[in-house]
Design a protein around this nucleic acid. Sequence first.
DNA 1: TGGATGGTTCGGCTAAGGTCGAACCATGAC
DNA 2: GTCATGGTTCGACCTTAGCCGAACCATCCA
Lengths: 235, 235
Amino acid sequence: MTDSPNIAALAAPLADPARARMVLALMDGRARTVGELGAAAGLGKASASEHLAKLTDAGFLKAERQGRHKYLTLASPEVAGLIEAMMALAGRTPARLPQIGPRDPALREARLCYNHLAGALGVRVYRSLSACGYLAHRPGGLDLTPSGRAFCHDFGLTETDLAPARTPLCRDCLDWSERQSHLGGRLGRLLLQRMEALGWLRRRPEGRALIVTPEGRRAIGLAFLPDAEVPKPAA
Amino acid sequence: MTDSPNIAALAAPLADPARARMVLALMDGRARTVGELGAAAGLGKASASEHLAKLTDAGFLKAERQGRHKYLTLASPEVAGLIEAMMALAGRTPARLPQIGPRDPALREARLCYNHLAGALGVRVYRSLSACGYLAHRPGGLDLTPSGRAFCHDFGLTETDLAPARTPLCRDCLDWSERQSHLGGRLGRLLLQRMEALGWLRRRPEGRALIVTPEGRRAIGLAFLPDAEVPKPAA
DNA sequence: TGGATGGTTCGGCTAAGGTCGAACCATGAC
DNA sequence: GTCATGGTTCGACCTTAGCCGAACCATCCA
């Protein structure tokens, strides 16, 4: 009777509004304490603790103790990917309201998705890299081409950054607000870090929205095609 | 306070085991009546009706009346895709049990995913088409190349089959048991239909598993590479 | 050592929702 | 018209689980 994968067990932890808000609050990839997440969800300590225990038991969250604090993060990029995918679908289901995507324009333009860049800017980077032949799309996922590798070097990434490792270098991630892919995986994280180091982007103390600095706006305009054509199938 | 997309509202309908079983029962793309789905979930008429109303309200299912029957199907390929993605993730979360993928080997080899071919065979077809340069992967999705178009003609598909339309011709679908992509979209459906017409595959009256006929096994061995290499990024 | 603070556990309250039988409504068959 | 049947609605029961205050435990600080 129960030979099927337990979708229900996977969905149940997310089915509570308070828990969903907590998970969403972690979508910027940063770690939060129990108290912070409880406050974000409008709960007391007790409820927050129970909810978070449920989420970690279900494998959505990972906990790490530091002194008397307990820091919670999303358990894996796969989890983050599922959440973004659900957001993308949730945005379209409410047939009653045209409320598509985030209201906050800053969130639409550039935001953190777990640990990489998302939003219109993330999609633009992804499309530009694809159009220039820096990313190769294959069935299982995504590869950095040799020319892409060269581009990354010019961009300031090191050999060791791009070395093969256990986790995939490139990864597709469906963008919630744009309904297109942006770049995740280790490379997504590295590019974001580099852009921060270059002063193009800055994180806000709160929230997932990223600040695009004036020089960042200029530099990105030069480095990435504004509305890249998708590579055409070979003739 | 509720400025975030309501993940919870999306997850809640799936969070009940009975409802999850019903949705899973529809993953073969066929339509079922309320009574059939209730029986599949082990429920009475009353409960089945209520659950199914909830699922259709949430946008997961689509209902169509025929006489005194009410036929339910999955609402869209997007929904089917989310379910398969959740199955893929649910298969890995139970850190306690190594229960990966379906127990039924027939289900592993070839099965219906909504309306196209999934399982090891579906992945093989997908990889072979990609390796032969028939499918072009681009950021937003997937395209049929001119040579792929020729292949489809040889395979027995018509011009009108492959004509542009509102719904995408090709679509990635993450395979639950294989953890790789297989081919969805209109082309996925057409290929499956063609394979059935050729007598390569047969549907079972019950369940999602497909029967691979002996001649089908032979023909598929000739038509599709057994373990195709993934196309390498351009040098 | 004592106090402040973050987190967990416990107990009790309450609301939500799943289940079923029974009544009811519609459709189709005779 | 009458009956059988698929589906929905209603009412009652009961379990689940979310919520909080209070007690408790652990850690850090003074």
